[in-house]
Amino acid sequence: MEVGIRGWGAYIPRFRLSAQEIAALWGYDSRLPKALGIVEKSVAEEDEDSVTMGWYAARVAMRRAGVGGDDIDAVFFGTESKPYAVKPSATIIADALGVKKRKLASDLEFACRAAGEGVRISVGLVKSGLARNALVIGSDTAQANPGDLLDFTASSGAVAFVIGSGSSSAAAIEASVTYVTDTPDFWRRDRSPYPEHAEIFTGEPAYFHHIVSAVRLLLEETGLKVGDFDYAIFHQPNGRFPLQVARSLGIPQEKVAPGLVTPYIGNTYNASALLGLAKVLEEARPGSRILVATFGSGAGSDAFSIVVRDSVLELVKKGPRVVDMVNFKVQVTYGEYSKFRGLLLRNVGG
């Protein structure tokens, strides 16, 4: 049985903070944004969080898939910025979307790759017949210690997919594999407002090792070669890492460029690579084969081989495109960014 993406949706907040302004405010070299491959990052408003952004993306994904609340048997919410430490976000989104009560629903946490795992779990549920359709959402309002290097990239956004079976899918998920280890490259302890990271250690032993290992396993399992893929999409902690990992895998830059979103909106964490996938689905020709590799610190990577089907062309028109959301933007100052993201504390309710 073929399992695939029946619908997808994205959400990118409209406001943008320029990397140059961050560099100037915190005394970084003005060449740093270019070195990080980041122009600006998306900023969610005060009344947005991973639930509200995820709701939007999921609503569009369900519309594209042509499914209603009664058709969804599972809801998975991948995030590292859930509004409640305890209390599921998946149920809030499901109720607000009118998803029926008889369903699986939970929040998944694995830094930036929880939603990637959600896709694999959903494929398993659909293949086994335990679910007809599963809704997977990746959404984050990523936190960064103000003035830290992460401040340049930590941004907000969401993406969602309806995973189901049948010939109507927009893209078939033909293979997937996951590679995980215990690697302390990036973490946030309970009650800590911002994550900590092990600087350069986040690169070679973490991001590069896990993505390259997952992709090699996928190639081994499928017998495919990197040349068989028309697009390659990797997790995008900055604008440079995905290009570097592509080079080490022997994949040309022009196959990576279409799925790059971080240079324009920052790193949306659980949405990052999958938002790149949503963008490529909106541009790719039917028959194209897409390599997707997520990455989550701690650390792990899911690699997918996805083949675009004919119906993708009709489904693109049924919702807002990623590229339109990237371009529909308004600049904010660091002051507004601080207000939007709750970095200023005002006494309220007095």
């Binding site: 005060e46 009344d47 207000k339 709750g342 200023l344 005002r346 309220v348 309710g349």
Partner: peptide
């Protein structure tokens, strides 16, 4: 307003 969302 005074409804705990004055920060907005």
């Amino acid at each position: 307003k005074r409804d705990s969302s004055e920060d907005r």
